[in-house]
Amino acid sequence: MTEEIIIAGFGGQGVLSMGKILAYSGIMQDQEVSWMPSYGPEMRGGTANVTVILSDERISSPYLKIVDTAIILNQQSMDKFEESVKPGGVLIYDPNGITAHPTRTDIKIYQIEGTKLASEMGNKKIFNMIILGGYLKVKPVVKLENVIEGLKKSISERYHNLIPLNVEAITMGMNNIVPYKIEKHVFQN
């Protein structure tokens, strides 16, 4: 099994840390992993993306043009990465702030209201865990117990009391991801 993922959004949304938790979860189930960030002059509010690969075999290139799954969290990333999904692959996105929705018909598209759900849960910082939950519902590449182990490894011990909240967010994401159907507009004169 090899799963290649691009996660892309604004800096500050937790894009890189979500990728790190996913990579750690892969290690917990003895997979090979790679985590390749865009490390440009990004900062909070700028764009950030990370390519994560989980595989049962040795990983060749950590940097990819075409991936199995794209998780897209802002419009700039949609413009850039909608084309990066393999035919038959998966695109997951948060519709918040998206003005031009995806149009491809050869991939599976899912929507998750991460921003809205995070604000309903009263903690914007768990946004990325809601998205991760949604992703794991569609692509159960790592088991939840390994994600919890991965969380323990990737966040410092003084924040381990927040793990139940993170698990709650993951579950929230799992229960709230929905397939997105491209509406076919019929123009009539």
């Binding site: 990579a23 290690i27 992993v33 985590w35 390749m36 960030p37 490390y39 990983i59 950590p62 940097y63």
Partner: peptide, 10 residues
């Protein structure tokens, strides 16, 4: 280089 320096692996 920047790629090997910045990426994470096992």
């Amino acid at each position: 280089d920047g790629l090997i320096g910045q990426m994470m692996e096992k």
